[in-house]
């Protein structure tokens, strides 16, 4: 075998190997493009009364630790004062009446509640950084964590621009909102959507024109959180104030 033949054969084999890999990968791609639903959520900021029922229901449905700071969904209160200062508080119903008619020293310009949860990004930074493939995008576009495979390295918690993940204090693995995957796959609404008294949360399939979410997106001015991060969130906000981060 001379040098020319050796190079030719090696090159040929490499091409064959790579193209073979591509061919094998193709059926897998088409499986993902199946007409499965793509779930998303819409939130009417103007309807949220900050009652905290969604947070309570989420914790019960998903066995989230009862202590504060561990949330799959939470409600933030924004207060913008006349001098331009912005205050953000997180609702916590376990402490007594967090929002009672308190006398503030400064005058309030406007104030409102913003429910938050995992944005189920279409381009999720948390999935990209997971070193073991324990967090992934389901065929429905929901970002899930595999608790038996997660090594608890916290890399995804760092990577999430929305602070939607936490380390489960007992299981020592990352945990996050799953859109109540066990409910939505049975045709039920996520627990937070189910209990919201003012229907401030809308859940639905983005691919179906008849879904309440698509209607929500047709009828409202829509904004997402941190669009500059290029994460393509699937949680959409109507009437979002410019101060919300």
């Amino acid at each position: 075998m001379n040098r020319r033949n050796f190079i030719r054969d090696t090159f040929g084999l490499a091409v064959l190997f790579l193209s073979g890999k591509e061919v094998l990968a193709l059926p897998r791609m088409s499986k993902e493009n199946d007409r499965s639903p793509r779930y998303g959520m819409g939130i009417y900021i103007k309807r949220c009364v900050g009652c905290g029922k969604c947070v309570e229901a989420c914790k019960l449905e998903n066995n989230v630790p009862k202590y504060p700071f561990f949330y799959r969904t939470w409600v933030e209160r924004y207060t913008i004062y006349k001098d331009g200062e912005v205050e953000v508080e997180t609702l916590d119903r376990s402490t007594k009446s967090p929002y009672s008619v308190e006398k503030r020293e400064k005058q309030i310009l406007r104030s409102f509640f913003v429910p938050k949860l995992c944005n189920q990004c279409d381009n999720p930074p948390c999935v990209q950084v997971c070193p073991v493939g324990a967090t992934f995008k389901s065929p429905e576009g929901v970002i899930l964590v595999d608790p038996d495979y997660c090594i608890g390295c916290r890399y995804c918690i760092q990577a999430c621009p929305y602070g939607a993940r936490y380390l489960h204090p007992e299981k020592r693995v990352a945990d996050k909102c799953t859109f109540c995957y066990h409910r939505i796959t049975k045709g039920l609404k996520p627990a937070c959507v189910e209990v919201c008294p003012t229907h401030a949360r809308v859940f639905g399939d983005l691919t179906k024109r008849s879904s309440p979410l698509v209607r929500f997106m047709r009828m409202n001015e829509i904004h997402v959180l941190k669009p500059g991060m290029n994460t393509e969130p699937k949680v959409f906000y109507a009437n979002l104030d410019g101060e919300v981060r």
Partner: peptide
């Protein structure tokens, strides 16, 4: 099988017990 994850993780997630019944 479906992507860069275990298929059984998806099944486990689906089989979690329900708490809220729905209206």
């Amino acid at each position: 099988e479906l992507g860069h994850y275990r298929t059984s993780a998806l099944v486990n997630e689906k089989n979690k017990p329900l708490v809220y019944a729905g209206r």
